[in-house]
């Protein structure tokens, strides 16, 4: 089965995607990740204003029988949290690249983006 991968985004090996908007990185999880988890029933709290380093655990996303930590794909400060997805976790399954975004990070070092994969590389990485 082919998972949806969106062109123009950056991807981490932990299955987060990053969309760059100026110095802001919008972060979510990929279609592959949401499918592996199954129906998401809970998205943990994300601390607004928290400074995170790349690979730090930011929150957790849980389905009925699995739990998955969400890591910061890039260093910076968490400046916005998607409250809609916390109150309705099904958005993560329905629209992982759109309404299901998780949080925004004000990037500390945009150079780190280079360490992430592009759509093509990620597609290759998660080919079944």
């Amino acid at each position: 089965m082919a998972y949806k991968v969106v062109e123009g985004l950056y991807y981490s090996k932990n299955d987060e995607w990053v969309k760059v908007e100026g110095d802001i990185a919008v972060v979510g999880i990929t279609d592959y990740a949401q499918d592996k988890l199954g129906d998401v029933v809970y998205v943990g709290e994300v601390t607004l204003g928290k400074k995170v380093k790349k690979e730090d655990t930011v929150t957790t996303v849980e389905s009925v029988k699995a739990a998955s930590d969400i890591y910061a794909p890039i260093s910076g400060e968490i400046v916005e949290v998607n409250k809609a997805v916390i109150s309705d976790p099904s958005l993560l399954n329905k629209d992982p690249y759109g309404e299901g975004w998780l949080f925004k990070i004000k990037m500390e070092n945009p150079e780190e983006l280079k360490e992430l994969m592009d759509a093509k590389a990620y597609e290759e990485y998660r080919r079944e």
């Binding site: 029933v41 809970y42 957790t60 849980e62 389905s63």
Partner: peptide, 12 residues
């Protein structure tokens, strides 16, 4: 609310 439990979250 099983995802609190050891068989899913292990050390967490």
């Amino acid at each position: 609310l099983r995802s609190r439990e050891q068989d899913i979250k292990r050390e967490k």
